[in-house]
């Protein structure tokens, strides 16, 4: 099988999610034989990739590819796919991927199975993804190739990628026939982050189960007594109860503390992707069916509003 992997560049650094997905490509090659090609739109990234076991690295250059611009990215990838004719095209499931790869799929009439969490390599290849907010897992097959895949962050481990030495084929690309209708402005941040959750050892995280804003002080107190930081899922930030930098998950930060205490959180997939690497996970929720319990090392089926004050008392004594 010919596999093409796109490596995303974030300010001249390899995007870790797209690099992890290289492991998926190498696993398929190891079992089904074939080639793994990487493509990137940045020469610095291309040079960094030479340390991995790849059959070739392609780097495309054009000033329209320096910053993310979807219609140019799609055109460059379209050219690449026409040249190499890969069976599988792999991406990390990043925010950029979500913005341009579905469109690439439609342009080339190649189906795109997005946000996969794994592959099963049997006689057939099976692609694993989650449905119903993580309540169900499903295996998918395809009736024909080519196919586009994206993998959720954390699906593979970057430290398991096979090393090697590979060559870069760097070339310029022309975009005479692209009519650009999408004009991105500069990126900006709305609120300066006051805490760096990625460095926290203990995170006390709240979800909708906290009920109302008036219950926040006890969460802050618990976090303080534990020497930890407060985080949350998206609905809490959307309600304006916490600043956006407290948000963990696909639209927030990715953390891996020593202890993650999830209070009144259902465990929606968008949240879980941001914290599943935590060393110890404690889940407290009234609803014994909350998917979050699947990830718990320690689980409590109970009311957080009763348990939090008691924990504060115990920590005080």
């Amino acid at each position: 099988m010919k596999i093409l992997i796109y490596i995303e560049d974030n300010d001249n650094k390899i995007n870790s999610n797209s690099l992890e997905s290289l492991k998926a490509a190498q696993e398929i090659k190891a079992n089904k034989s074939g080639q793994v090609y990487a493509v990137t739109f940045n020469d610095i990234i291309a040079n960094e990739l030479t340390r991995y076991d790849l059959d070739k690295i392609y780097s495309f250059k054009n000033s329209n590819l320096d910053d993310y611009s979807p219609l140019f990215f799609i055109k460059a990838m379209e050219n690449m796919i026409e040249e190499i004719k890969p069976d599988i095209i792999i991406f990390g499931h990043t925010y950029q991927t979500r913005d341009w790869v579905p469109r690439l799929s439609a342009r080339l009439d190649i189906p795109f199975i997005s946000d996969c969490t794994g592959i099963k390599i049997e006689d057939d290849l099976k692609f694993v993804r989650q449905l119903y907010q993580g309540k169900v897992t499903a295996d998918f097959t395809v009736s024909s190739f080519p196919l586009i895949l994206s993998f959720q962050s954390g699906s593979f481990r970057a430290d398991q990628i096979s090393n090697g030495s590979s060559e870069v084929n760097s070339s310029n690309i022309d975009f005479n026939d692209v009519v650009n209708t999408i004009h991105p402005d500069e990126k900006f941040q709305e609120s300066e982050s006051e805490v760096d959750l990625t460095q926290a050892d203990i995170i006390v995280s709240i979800g909708r189960g906290i009920g109302k804003e008036d219950n926040l002080p006890m969460v802050n107190e618990l976090a303080e007594k534990l020497g930890g930081n407060v985080a949350s899922s998206r609905p809490i930030v959307d309600s304006g109860w916490l600043e956006p930098y407290h948000q963990i998950g696909s639209s927030g930060q990715t953390v891996s503390p020593k202890l993650y205490i999830a209070l009144g959180m259902s465990g929606a997939i968008q949240h879980v992707v941001g914290m599943k690497g935590s060393q110890n996970i404690v889940v407290i929720n009234k609803d014994s069916n909350a998917p979050f319990f699947e990830l718990a090392d320690y689980a409590v089926v109970g009311d957080i509003l009763e348990i939090i004050p008691k924990m504060i008392e115990v920590l005080d004594s």
Binding site: P111, I113, K126, Q130, L131, G134, K135, V136, T137, A138, D139, F140, T141, V142, S143, S144, L147, P291, F293, E294, L295, A296, D297, Y298, A299, V300, V301
Partner: peptide
């Protein structure tokens, strides 16, 4: 071209102590 092969409840990857 994409076909659902099988659905299942996620397998637990770790043991949980209640």
């Amino acid at each position: 071209k994409v076909n659902l092969d099988k659905m299942y409840i996620p397998q637990k990857s770790k043991s949980t102590e209640y």
